[in-house]
């Protein structure tokens, strides 16, 4: 209880990080839709308010059980229950048991325009972490599903604590990403909290270290879910079904040097199989778009809507064939 109070105080009352006035204004805007998740009395991460009904979104890695506690900016605590986790993105939908907080505003999601080169803030339980967007159109492949995911590349000042699953915001307060992966940990001191029990003193140490380490010498390269897929997931969570819809035709492909984009696997009874796709087909065109790399095909398929018809032009045994396929959805 004491621990919760201390961490809450760090986050909501006295921010230990020296923020510029612009950063402080951005952090205040973020605070209107952001809550701190706790499990067993320990802060685990942050979640954002999706609607006025009390639905929240958080990364699965910070939701340690089916029922977690959230601390609001006002200091009030609410209980959240896990409803659903979107597998491709690992984003979880949570719902408050009772929700009546007019002072909090549902988050809005940026469309990604103009983000590159702009500063950002990542929301951690102990405060914000600064960084900037390097790119918003990176191609990500998530293992083991091998699914394509659009990513944003972010460089941010290395915090002295775990930050996986942190919500990433632009300075306008809009959600711009959810930190999913890191390329490399450049700071040797970043394990300050790892292996140490969280106490009031520990949290204070983390906050001080975090404040003193801000600077260009300790930067971490991270990848967050890009705005394109973020919008899709948020809209899906806000829909009556509360499920994001990801298109799929049920095949796996790869670039083969000197050959092209070759189909490796066709899932049985999938839209690709129904459309006549076979292993070994070389895809050369999708719709009106020429396919030069597997990334091209992945992006093309990602942007389709389930139920729409597409035509793939393929090469099979030296002959050109067309494959009419109705896009399905990944479950």
């Amino acid at each position: 209880m004491l621990l919760s109070a201390v961490s809450l105080g760090l986050v909501l009352a006295g921010d230990p990080v020296q923020l510029s006035p612009e950063e402080q204004r951005a952090w205040d805007r973020i605070g209107q839709s952001c809550v701190v998740l706790q499990s067993g009395g320990f802060p685990t991460g942050t979640a954002i308010l999706l609607d006025r009904s009390g639905h929240f979104m958080a990364h699965r890695s910070v939701v340690l059980s089916d029922r977690v506690e959230a601390t609001l900016r006002s200091g009030k605590k609410v209980s959240l229950r896990l409803i659903f986790t979107d597998e491709p993105t690992q984003l979880s939908l949570l719902a408050a048991d009772k929700w009546d907080e007019p002072g909090m505003a549902p988050v809005t999601v940026t469309d990604g325009a103009g983000l590159v080169g702009r500063p950002m803030l990542a929301a951690l339980p102990t405060g914000p972490v600064r960084g900037e967007f390097v790119s918003t159109d990176r191609v990500g492949v998530v293992q083991p599903s091998k699914r394509y995911v659009p990513l944003s590349e972010i460089r941010f000042e290395t915090p002295g604590q775990r930050f996986g699953g942190a919500m990433v915001f632009g300075f306008d307060g809009r959600l711009a990403g959810v930190l999913s992966a890191t390329l490399k940990e450049t700071s040797g001191e970043a394990d300050l909290s790892i292996g140490r029990p969280l106490t009031a003193g520990t949290i204070d140490d983390i906050a001080r270290a975090q404040a003193s380490r801000f600077g260009p010498s300790s930067m971490t390269v991270g990848y967050s879910l890009g705005p394109e897929i973020l919008i899709r997931v948020v809209e899906g969570f806000r829909s009556p079904s509360q499920r994001p819809i990801h298109p799929s035709i049920g095949c796996f492909f790869k670039d083969i040097l000197g050959v092209g984009i070759q189909i490796e696997v066709v899932m049985p009874n999938s839209p690709a199989a129904v459309g006549g796709m076979q292993v070994g087909d070389v895809i050369v065109k999708a719709g009106d778009q020429t396919i030069n790399t597997s990334q091209d095909l992945a992006v093309f398929l990602f942007r389709q809507k389930p139920g729409t018809s597409i035509t793939l032009l393929a090469r099979r045994n030296g002959m050109g064939i067309t494959l009419p396929i109705v896009v399905g959805r990944a479950d």
Binding site: F253, K254, I256, Q295, L297
Partner: peptide
């Protein structure tokens, strides 16, 4: 991207 299998 050679030999990187992607699902779609």
């Amino acid at each position: 991207s050679n030999d990187v299998v992607i699902g779609g």
